[in-house]
Design a protein around this nucleic acid. Sequence first.
DNA 1: TTGTATGCGTTATCAA
DNA 2: TTGATAACGCATACAA
Lengths: 340, 340
Amino acid sequence: MVSVPARRKRATIHDVAVEAGVSRGTVSRVVNDEPYVSASARAAIEAAIEKVGYVPNNAARSLVMQRSQAVGFIVHEPHSLFLEDPNIGEILLGANTALSDADYQMVCLIIDSERDTARVARYLSGGFVDGVIIVSARQHDPITRVVEKLGLPTAFVGHPPDLRDLPFVGIDNRRSARDLTERLLATGRQRVGMIAAALDRDSGADRLAGFTDALGERFDPALVASVPLYAYAAGVEGMRELLHRSPDIDGVFAASDAVAAGALEALRDAGRSVPGDVGVVGFDDSAWARRTQPPLSTVHQPASGLGAGAAELVLQQLRGEATPVGGLLLHTPIVWRASA
Amino acid sequence: MVSVPARRKRATIHDVAVEAGVSRGTVSRVVNDEPYVSASARAAIEAAIEKVGYVPNNAARSLVMQRSQAVGFIVHEPHSLFLEDPNIGEILLGANTALSDADYQMVCLIIDSERDTARVARYLSGGFVDGVIIVSARQHDPITRVVEKLGLPTAFVGHPPDLRDLPFVGIDNRRSARDLTERLLATGRQRVGMIAAALDRDSGADRLAGFTDALGERFDPALVASVPLYAYAAGVEGMRELLHRSPDIDGVFAASDAVAAGALEALRDAGRSVPGDVGVVGFDDSAWARRTQPPLSTVHQPASGLGAGAAELVLQQLRGEATPVGGLLLHTPIVWRASA
DNA sequence: TTGTATGCGTTATCAA
DNA sequence: TTGATAACGCATACAA
């Protein structure tokens, strides 16, 4: 038993016009809620629209209007993002809400291969979107180059590493890390280390810089373990290494909550109590932070604010307004819980 | 210091044609890799394309071709999905890979409000996509009705509750739940309960049905706690209730891994050991399953296979092939770990 | 092998 | 208030 889908051909403005006995122009005015159309004409046209089942053709509309009323949201490295980054969902939702309020359709495009890169580049170039939001851009990114050459209104979430003068919204990782570390030091810890992660990324490097800022003279490179990813497993490993190198460690700044959760496991395995023997702090205030035992002290990422801010930056350009060069830095409050 | 983006107007085929000294038709042939174009003309045109910076206009192309080479991926209830459902990311990636291989652009659309619903419906109606994948459809969903009326090639991930004869790909929740429960019973547990979740959804109701199937005569309604969501916090609460009602409980089927993780916490708080005092099993084989202590016995969801399967169903229709009525049920192996 | 002409479904500019 | 008519940028059948 099989079924072949019925693809009836779609009614056009022309069909509505003949059905209602008016011209195409008048139908168009009704469809777009424009003034200067008589009540009788409007009624007839609305009935005709209903009768023939007319729905406007966006392709035709955007061809003549030269805009699509859509904004792209590009997600790179989906593996690490979707499966690790606890914030991507909220960033998406924040951006969607802001765009939706301005009556723009957000279309999310995933780049997961070379082929995707090329296809998405074509998609963006082809006029299917009026602007674009890019998360986690990499250096020398082809997509970044495309939107730049096209002059497409763009906003980045996080610094685009090689393009400082494009609009972006982010947080001050360095400053946040410094403040958090200082807070940890203020609890009286003597040997404070860090599990640094993703040092090839801006955020990772900045968090380490903030940590060293806070420690100043007391900074000891032996107390820094570096792991490749913001991941739970990486946190386990990093903490083990730290414990091995400096058994007297009594404080740890983990580069993310996921990393901190892993560190907690390693500490538990090693028989250390938290926060008794060791104080632990994370970063992100993601779902992890409230689920660990004890819950994590951390710094809050305004994830949905990042999405909304990026959307706003794009909308500004779409409205033809000037946008501040450089970036928008959002506030990141410290959330102090029981892990330190 | 502000910057106003430079929006240079885009070159068209016409511009390329005059630059290369040929006709528009020939340029079009080159752009689309068609035969019957001389090497000299091709060379001149390619040079001209480069020089004027031509990129094809998708809106115009899809207007004349009557297709966009794009497939929509609709995400409903993003709050519970993105923030709770550990599978959505993999489903997305699986679908994207399959569509990408067929040279289709996947565009992911989020529905987070009434307004979104209307806008997405317009977007789909307007010819911006040739087909659509829908996850977690709800009863009497406006979007479902729209694609149905449009005759747009569609596939659902999970049953569309009220439309059994539309193509979908899913898993057999009932059978999987039954098999898992039987496996749990086989370990010798005497008082086996369930934390049922999301009973208003197909998956939730089916998992409960499978549980009762397995218990048969031994089913005791007092051993079933119902919670609204597939969430960690719900698991904590559900387990507490179960312990309160039946302190002699020695086995629990939690409706999802997140729920099971919550249950584990409640059991720990109550001083019960797992799997010593109580055997616990989950559902999904999500990231939770490997992170809990002890790791969860559970049933594996072929998440990326679900996405790929749905994409394939849409592609079949796009190719004009007949599609099997009803659904595609994927295999769900049991993964036995240490929690039971 | 190449050029020309027509149409895809809209919006927008005029006259009427 | 309405109706013609010209774009919008491209693909394509047909003519050359």
